[in-house]
Each structure stands twice: as C-alpha cells, then as structure tokens.
Simulated assay, not measured.
Amino acid sequence: MKKINVVGTSATGKSTFSKALAEKLGLHYIELDILFWLDDWQECPDEIFFARIEAEMAKAKNGYVIDGNYTRAIPVKWAEIDTVIWLDLPFPINLYRSIKRTVSRSKSKQDLWPNSNNQDSLWRMFGPNSMVWWMIKTHKKNRNKYLKMMSAPEYQYIQWIRLKTPKEVEQFLAQLDSYEYVV
C-alpha cells in the first residue's frame, strides 16, 4: 500500500481518515477538494484539475493517499494506484455527520479550504447545492458505483478495502500501529 485513494460518500470521514492514514504510513496527503474548488464555489476546469492532481502525485516520491472521489479524475488518479479504501458507512451515520459538520462549519464561518473563500452556511444547508442534500442524493448511487467497480475487470489490479462501520475504520487504523511499515 503505497498509492492509495480513499473514497466514499460525503461526510464518511474521508479527510480525517486519509490524513491519519498518510501520517501512519509516511505518505504524501492529497486532498482533491483543495485542488478542485475555486472561490465562490466555482469548479476548476478539468484540464487544470487533472494537472494539479498529477503535480501532487509527482511530489510524492514515497507514495500518497488521495482523499476524494471525483470519478472524472479516475484515469489520472488511478493511473498508478495500488489500493482503494472505500469508507462505506450506513446512510443514517452519513446523514448525521453531514448535518453536524454543516452546522458546525456554518457557526465557525471557517473557509473550507485554504485556497478558496468557500464556506458552509445554514442557508446553503437547505438549498439545492447543500452538502447535506448532495450526500442524500449520492449515497446509494456511490454505493452501487463502487460495488460495480470492485468487480470490473479493468480495476482488478487494485486492492479494494471496504470499511462499513466506524468501528472497522478505527480498527483498520489501529492495526497499522501493530507493525512497522517501511516505505
């Protein structure tokens, strides 16, 4: 496990997990949202987004942990990938986390990424472009998509790890402490 992509529906804890995983394994952490989102919720054009991903991957001489889905970027981000870790948590957990995270971020008015002015807001939480609504719309769709990908012939070279509960996520990270990982 040296070139990893952590995927899952919004609010599964991808970023928290990915940062911890990268630290434990001594790998470069790449957050796709930072590379994708521009100010005022504008999306980065694909050619620039893909170039940013490639540049981050090139920096990672010992390997990397990519945090994020972005199906359009699969040809780039999975060009050399060896492992996909899918955080496939139950819908009620995702819904709770999504609402909690949005409310917390709305109160703090913190920028979501250091390179943009994007913030969560309670107004946005109830709008058609809210992260909560996005999670609701994509939870089942993402599950079906990753189930198909796991068995697709073109992705058989990838080691798939599916973690379905918060306890499995914690146990996976904890087991990494029980042996020395050499990069």
Rank of each mutant, 00 (worst) to 15 (best):
residue 98 S to T: 13
residue 40 D to Q: 12
residue 83 T to E: 03
residue 31 E to Y: 00
residue 22 A to D: 08
residue 105 R to V: 07
residue 28 H to P: 05
residue 110 Q to N: 14
residue 18 S to V: 10
residue 90 P to V: 02
residue 42 Q to W: 05
residue 115 N to Y: 04
residue 19 K to P: 06
residue 9 T to E: 02
residue 93 I to F: 00
residue 8 G to A: 00
residue 11 A to N: 14
residue 14 K to S: 05
residue 125 M to G: 02
residue 94 N to D: 03
residue 114 P to Q: 12
residue 47 E to L: 11
residue 59 K to E: 08
residue 57 M to A: 03
residue 120 D to T: 01
residue 128 P to G: 01
residue 109 K to Y: 00
residue 71 T to Q: 11
residue 100 K to Q: 12
residue 111 D to I: 12
residue 10 S to Y: 14
residue 43 E to G: 07
residue 17 F to W: 08
residue 104 S to V: 15
residue 62 N to H: 15
residue 44 C to H: 14
residue 30 I to T: 01
residue 42 Q to H: 13
residue 71 T to Y: 07
residue 21 L to I: 07
residue 113 W to L: 06
residue 81 I to H: 10
residue 11 A to T: 04
residue 26 G to S: 15
residue 33 D to E: 12
residue 84 V to T: 08
residue 107 K to Y: 10
residue 54 E to R: 13
residue 36 F to P: 00
residue 23 E to H: 14
residue 55 A to Y: 04
residue 25 L to N: 00
residue 75 P to F: 07
residue 27 L to H: 11
residue 17 F to I: 10
residue 118 N to F: 08
residue 64 Y to R: 08
residue 15 S to I: 06
residue 41 W to R: 04
residue 55 A to C: 01
residue 113 W to G: 00
residue 38 L to D: 09
residue 82 D to H: 04
residue 13 G to A: 03
residue 87 L to V: 06
residue 25 L to M: 14
residue 112 L to P: 06
residue 20 A to S: 14
residue 110 Q to K: 15
residue 63 G to A: 13
residue 113 W to N: 12
residue 60 A to N: 09
residue 49 F to S: 15
residue 7 V to E: 07
residue 64 Y to V: 09
residue 9 T to R: 03
residue 48 I to M: 14
residue 70 Y to N: 09
residue 113 W to Q: 13
residue 12 T to M: 08
residue 19 K to H: 13
residue 111 D to W: 07
residue 20 A to H: 06
residue 107 K to R: 14
residue 124 R to A: 09
residue 32 L to W: 01
residue 97 R to G: 04
residue 32 L to A: 04
residue 58 A to G: 08
residue 105 R to I: 05
residue 122 L to T: 06
residue 13 G to Q: 00
residue 23 E to Q: 14
residue 6 V to Q: 04
residue 25 L to I: 01
residue 19 K to M: 12
residue 72 R to E: 08
residue 48 I to R: 15
residue 38 L to E: 13
residue 24 K to T: 05
residue 8 G to I: 01
residue 31 E to K: 04
residue 56 E to G: 02
residue 17 F to M: 09
residue 100 K to L: 11
residue 15 S to H: 07
residue 53 I to L: 07
residue 54 E to S: 14
residue 82 D to G: 06
residue 75 P to G: 05
residue 108 S to I: 00
residue 43 E to H: 13
residue 74 I to R: 13
residue 18 S to L: 07
residue 83 T to R: 09
residue 52 R to K: 14
residue 110 Q to Y: 01
residue 50 F to R: 11
residue 16 T to G: 06
residue 7 V to S: 09
residue 83 T to P: 07
residue 117 N to G: 10
residue 105 R to H: 09
residue 98 S to P: 02
residue 18 S to F: 12
residue 71 T to N: 08
residue 64 Y to C: 12
residue 109 K to G: 05
residue 112 L to C: 03
residue 120 D to V: 00
residue 95 L to Q: 04
residue 88 D to T: 00
residue 13 G to R: 01
residue 18 S to W: 10
residue 32 L to Q: 02
residue 22 A to Q: 11
residue 24 K to I: 06
residue 84 V to Q: 04
residue 52 R to M: 10
residue 121 S to W: 03
residue 112 L to V: 05
residue 52 R to Q: 11
residue 7 V to P: 08
residue 128 P to W: 09
residue 122 L to G: 06
residue 127 G to C: 13
residue 58 A to T: 13
residue 101 R to S: 13
residue 51 A to K: 15
residue 36 F to E: 01
residue 7 V to N: 06
residue 101 R to N: 02
residue 50 F to V: 07
residue 104 S to I: 11
